[in-house]
């Protein structure tokens, strides 16, 4: 059970959790974060590149976070400094990010969007799980009991109150955006250095959007968000386990039905219990 189910679920959930925590911080500060997907993609590419070059997965992972953060600073500049529409800019960031790995892989590896395999010595065994766990604990603590969390939450709930208390709104939002970039970058890094052994084209494959869905299902709170990620992790593992398995009738369940499960769950939950009032009040207003 542990090896065949729980561990794999944790493995596939880890990147979702990291990205979702980033998304949560960002949206809590009042900035919509569609760009997680893009941050993850560049994170997974640069994570692989640095793991390859330094033969040290930790440096790879760190640089993955840095890459995500650099891209997120572009997003921050556009939406905070130039007040661009956040959803549109996030979409643009995602498009932009899709062009980045092929651009560099062509120059560095002469390939159209993948890296050579990372040697086993430069791959992770289990460490990212512990890192994720630590970051979950840190996030939950910071969210509820730290000055940082309190102020950042007010940037999304009632920015005027924050400002009249003498705290800069835009600095809190910058922090939220940069954290989301770093954590989503880390999430991408685990994809290429932990879940597999190289970067491949479009490696994030929609996980950034799933993470965003988890933030919403988790009502922008750390622990429920993590639980939502685990739920998606379970469906992903179930999808692999159920391939070719006959559940009813004579035919095995088509893999596509299980693939769409997380998305269906998200829509159903969105349409069901969650009311709009749960979201940070000033989300999207800048």
């Amino acid at each position: 059970m542990l090896d065949s189910f729980i561990l794999p679920v944790c493995r596939v959930s880890a990147p979702l959790i990291l990205a979702a925590l980033g998304g949560m911080w960002c949206e809590r500060s009042g900035v919509i974060q569609i760009g997680l997907e893009g941050f993850m993609l560049v994170g997974s590419f640069f994570g692989a590149v640095y793991a390859l070059n330094t033969s040290n997965p930790y440096i790879g992972l760190l640089m993955a976070g840095v890459a995500g953060m650099v891209l997120s600073s572009l997003y921050g500049m556009v939406v905070l400094r130039y007040r661009a529409n956040q959803i549109v800019s996030g979409t643009a960031i995602n498009l932009f990010a899709m062009g980045i790995p092929p651009f560099f892989s062509k120059i560095w590896f002469d390939s159209t969007g993948s890296t050579p395999p990372i040697p086993t010595a430069a791959q992770f065994q289990i460490a990212p799980l512990w890192i994720t766990l630590a970051l979950v604990a840190l996030s939950a603590w910071a969210y509820h009991s730290s000055r940082f969390g309190l102020r950042l939450r007010f940037a999304g709930e009632h920015p005027d109150a924050l400002q009249s208390a003498g705290v800069s709104i835009s600095w809190k939002r910058w922090q939220g955006i940069l954290i989301s970039g770093f954590l989503a970058g880390l999430a991408g890094g685990t994809l290429s250095t932990y879940l597999s052994s190289s970067f491949i084209r479009n490696m994030s494959a929609g996980r950034g959007f799933i993470a965003l869905a988890a933030v919403i299902l988790g009502k922008w709170k750390p622990i429920p968000t993590v639980l939502a990620c685990l739920l998606f992790g379970v469906t992903e593992i179930a999808q692999i386990r159920l391939q070719g398995v006959v559940l009813w009738g004579a035919e095995p369940v088509p893999v596509q039905w299980i693939q769409i499960l997380p998305y269906l769950i998200t829509i159903i939950v969105l349409a069901g219990a969650v009311g709009r009032s749960e979201s940070p009040k000033a989300l999207g207003n800048s």
Partner: peptide, 26 residues
């Protein structure tokens, strides 16, 4: 009012002037 609906009275009042530890614990 400059108060966030979903937060507690205490958090609303101390915002910006929070007594906290060196590590930022409230």
């Amino acid at each position: 009012f400059m108060l966030a609906d979903s937060e507690t009275v205490l958090d609303n009042i101390m915002l910006g002037h929070e007594p906290s530890t060196f590590f930022g614990l409230l």
